[in-house]
Amino acid sequence: MKISFRLNEKMIEIETAPDRRVIDLLREDLGITGTKEGCGSGECGACTVLIDGVSKLSCLMLAAQLEGRSITTIEGLVQDGKLHPVQKAFVSHGAVQCGFCSPGMVMSAVDLLQRNPLPGRQEIRRAVSGNLCRCTGYQKIIDAIQSAAKELD
């Protein structure tokens, strides 16, 4: 079937199987590999994207569900060549190690800061509790999000 949706502010029209997972559509059909897959069953958060601004798991969504929606992936956060404040804070606070969880982690943080511009540390921890990170021990990620919140406020 043909579906059309907005991907990182650009209209996309693509012929795809309706039951194709969104993560596969992004990575394999559109060649956008910033969104990662770590488990395929909603247990790691690496594939988190924003659908109409809300964080969702692209491994648990079917291509057909994108019809008419607006999807933001990690590639869509950079504006005019500038990193999003959350991305910037991840870099400067050392929140990135292997980096495979980072795109999903950043998307969850962006979702959080839209809902709650000045979250406390525990609220930040809760907000990324669906994003597993095996490298950092989370602390520097929490630091980064806290600092990005201050910057955005």
Binding site: I32, T33, G34, T35, T73, I74, E75, L77, V78, L83, Q87, F90, V91, S92, G94, A95, V96, G99, S102, P103, V106
Partner: peptide, 13 residues
């Protein structure tokens, strides 16, 4: 600051 962090956090690494 880690030189690899920027590309990783943009999803382009």
């Amino acid at each position: 600051t880690r030189s690899d962090a920027s590309a990783k956090v943009q999803g382009c690494e």
